[in-house]
């Protein structure tokens, strides 16, 4: 790492510390009742207690599992369907307007429908996550496949590559930057919908943990859950950045 990057890292760390200290100061000054706003000390204590003695660890794992399953489901479906639509101009013309119509629908709006069809079940939560995260995935894959350099298709024809090899060796890697961008968006959507789904269907997870803590005025437990959600979002985004830089190494120009 370059010295300037290390300096920036410490500067950002300092900002985070300052924020925690401000939080501590505000709660100590009792500007807000401690029933609603615990200090970082109490939130941290609740987090440690919850993981070592309570169910918090299991709930956290439940949330991570749901998020990843839903995300993988959406990613897989998005890449397969997106590849079909994206590689055919005709399919794009037919399906494009409908996709644009469904895309801006908030995924939470389909929750009542999902509940009426699937009940308050695990399958319902996964369906909602998968459905919501599918759109960013689908649209970016379609874009990636539509933007493949036409010259490369001619190269493939000249080399006599069969259609499935063209998709696997040319179109898919060429669309990878768009696909990864879509997966990043889908991951954020997955986390949001996981929490919503858990809250609505009372599945064992951070969403229900936060909701129940709030209802029983255990604000420290609530904050412990929120902190874990923040950590989950941060770590998963970092992991994806790492995977991206390995997968798309060829994009670095020199």
């Amino acid at each position: 790492m370059k010295p300037s990057r290390i300096a920036w890292f410490f500067a950002s760390l300092l900002v985070a510390c300052g924020f925690v200290m401000l939080w501590q100061y505000l709660s100590d000054a009792r500007l807000v009742s401690p029933v609603f706003l615990p200090g970082p000390d109490r939130a941290w204590a609740a987090l440690v207690r919850g993981i070592t003695q309570g169910e918090l660890g299991a709930r956290w794992l439940g949330t991570i599992e749901r998020m990843i399953y839903g995300w993988l489901l959406a990613s897989f479906a998005g890449i397969v369907i997106g590849a079909f639509i994206g590689s055919s101009e005709r399919a794009r013309a037919y399906v494009g307007p409908m996709l644009e119509l469904i895309r801006p629908l908030p995924a939470s709006a389909v929750v009542p429908l999902a509940i009426s069809l699937l009940g308050l079940s695990e399958a319902m939560v996964l369906t909602v996550i998968g459905f919501g995260a599918l759109w960013p995935m689908l649209l970016s894959t379609v874009h990636g496949f539509a933007a493949v350099e036409p010259r490369l298709y001619e190269v493939s024809r000249a080399l006599g590559l069969p259609q499935w090899k063209v998709i696997l060796k040319i179109a898919l890697p060429s669309s990878m930057p768009d696909i990864v961008a879509g997966m990043r968006l889908a991951l954020t959507v997955s986390l949001i919908l996981t929490v919503i789904g858990e809250m609505l269907a009372s599945r064992e997870g951070l969403g229900s943990h936060i909701l129940i803590s709030a209802r029983s005025f255990r604000s420290a437990d609530l904050f412990a859950g929120v902190i874990l959600l923040g950590v989950t979002g941060y770590v998963s985004a970092m992991a994806l950045t790492l995977a991206e830089s390995r997968l798309l190494r060829w994009r670095e120009s020199h």
Partner: peptide, 23 residues
Amino acid sequence: LKPRQDVAIIFQDYGKALLPWRT
């Protein structure tokens, strides 16, 4: 009737004809 593998084409725009993600 279609391209043959023993007839090779070298395009002018090498930047577009090469796969940028492959060495």
